[in-house]
Simulated assay, not measured.
Amino acid sequence: MRRFFFPGPLTPEMIITGDDGHHIARVLRLKPGDCIVVVGQDGQACQAEIVAVDGSSVKVACRQALTETKEPPVEVWLAQGLPKGDKMEYIIQKAVELGVSRILPVETAHTVVRYDTEKKAARRERWQKIAYEAAKQCGRAAVPEIAPVQTLSALLKMTLPETVFMLYEGHPARGLKDALRMTTSESYLLLIGPEGGFSSDEVLLCRQRGAHIVTMGPRILRTETAALAALTAVLYERGDLGGT
């Protein structure tokens, strides 16, 4: 059954407009009597029946509350050093499918891609749409936020999850698996460098801010591979993705 997100709490009747309304009415050509799944801003879901279609405005009525367990048992943020090309789009799509909670694009010392203010806003809007579509496709109960592009130093001044892991291939660091088994956190931040990884100064800065410097093993991974592999490892070790 098709899934759509509603920008507010579920109510007995709701009107879906915008891109989703257009998709329901004009692309899928659903009609009164057809059913969809609607997920509210608080993650609650219901089976809803379409009761009226007016152009790209679709009125639906909740018919049955749904009990779903779609979100991971822990919160995982992904701070991704901006990669070249369209790799960021791929990382966002797959990270949302896997269960990431929030994605924070980061400019680092080795970042090749540099956006001006206008370009940053446009990219963020596109990335958020990719996250939205990925969340719909894989049945998520929430759409992860794509944060504004920021520097690593600005990121480290934020209120961050309990445990911060920085993946760094140039340091004799503890393996991610061992590091995970030494923590009992319910929230994590993964710091992933762009092509070229992190600089030694950035590693020192993150260490001073309490980050655990970890490795994914003896092989050097591409930035998009490292991000998704680390996210998978954390979620699996914490009981998601079929792990126990």
Rank of each mutant, 00 (worst) to 15 (best):
R3L: 09
R3V: 04
F6M: 08
P7I: 13
P9T: 10
P12W: 09
P12Y: 06
E13V: 07
M14A: 13
M14Y: 10
G18R: 09
H22M: 04
I24A: 08
I24P: 07
L28K: 06
K31I: 00
K31W: 04
G33Y: 14
G33P: 08
C35G: 02
C35F: 14
V39M: 01
Q47Y: 00
Q47L: 15
Q47R: 15
A48Y: 01
D54I: 02
S56V: 07
S57R: 15
K59W: 02
C62I: 13
Q64T: 07
Q64I: 00
Q64K: 11
E68H: 07
T69Q: 15
E71C: 08
E71F: 09
P73L: 06
V76L: 10
A79E: 13
A79M: 05
L82V: 04
L82D: 09
P83E: 13
P83Q: 07
D86G: 11
E89P: 05
E89C: 01
Y90V: 07
Y90A: 09
I91G: 07
A95Q: 11
V100E: 14
P105C: 09
V106E: 15
V106N: 11
T111W: 05
V112L: 09
V113K: 03
D116A: 10
R124H: 01
E125H: 07
W127L: 08
K129T: 07
I130V: 15
E133D: 13
Q137T: 00
A141E: 14
A142I: 04
A142G: 06
P144Q: 02
I146M: 03
P148R: 09
V149Q: 07
V149F: 12
Q150E: 15
K157D: 12
K157S: 11
M158V: 02
T159D: 15
T159A: 08
P161M: 01
E162M: 00
E162V: 00
Y168D: 15
E169G: 02
G170P: 06
G170E: 13
P172H: 12
P172G: 11
G175P: 00
G175L: 01
A179L: 04
A179K: 09
A179T: 05
M182E: 10
T184L: 07
S185P: 01
Y188H: 02
Y188I: 02
L191C: 12
I192F: 00
G196E: 14
G197T: 11
S199D: 14
D201V: 02
D201E: 15
V203G: 06
L205I: 03
R207G: 10
Q208T: 10
R209S: 11
G210S: 08
G210I: 08
G210F: 02
A211D: 13
H212Y: 12
V214S: 11
R219Y: 11
T223V: 14
T223G: 12
A230P: 09
L231E: 09
L231N: 08
T232I: 06
A233S: 08
A233K: 01
L235M: 06
G243N: 05
